[in-house]
């Protein structure tokens, strides 16, 4: 299973990005082979529609879940229809490393 996590930077020490569509990086974590990939968000500075563009971007990685601080209404309905599960973590200080540990221990 693949999980996308929004991140403020490109290391495991970075914090979760509270914004979904305008996050700095997406972390794609593969629970099977434990691969972790940091990908810069190409739509971060889009004038409009950064959220739907971000869904399109992460959906192309075939993720099953997405973890972020906040997800807007436009994006929610698209994620629902794609059957991608949303997990909200409203803790701006939470590190990517800790989130991956939590996923591992579940």
């Amino acid at each position: 299973m693949k999980i996308a996590i929004t991140s403020t930077g490109n290391s495991l020490e970075s914090n979760i990005d509270q914004r979904f569509g305008r996050c700095a990086y997406f972390v794609i974590y593969n629970t099977e082979n434990k691969a972790i990939e940091f990908i810069p968000n190409p739509n971060k500075d889009k004038e409009a529609g950064a959220g739907p563009a971000a869904v399109q971007f992460i959906a192309s990685y075939n993720v099953d879940k997405v973890i972020s601080g906040e997800i807007g209404a436009k994006v929610k309905s698209i994620l629902d229809s794609l059957k991608i599960q949303m997990i909200i973590i409203k803790e701006p200080e939470r590190k990517i490393k800790e989130i991956i540990d939590m996923l591992e221990n579940n």
Binding site: N43, E47, A48, G49, P52, A53, V55, S60, L82
Partner: peptide, 12 residues
């Protein structure tokens, strides 16, 4: 304006 959302592989 990013108003068209498309995933060609999934035909969405």
């Amino acid at each position: 304006y990013n108003a068209i959302f498309i995933l060609p592989d999934l035909k969405v």
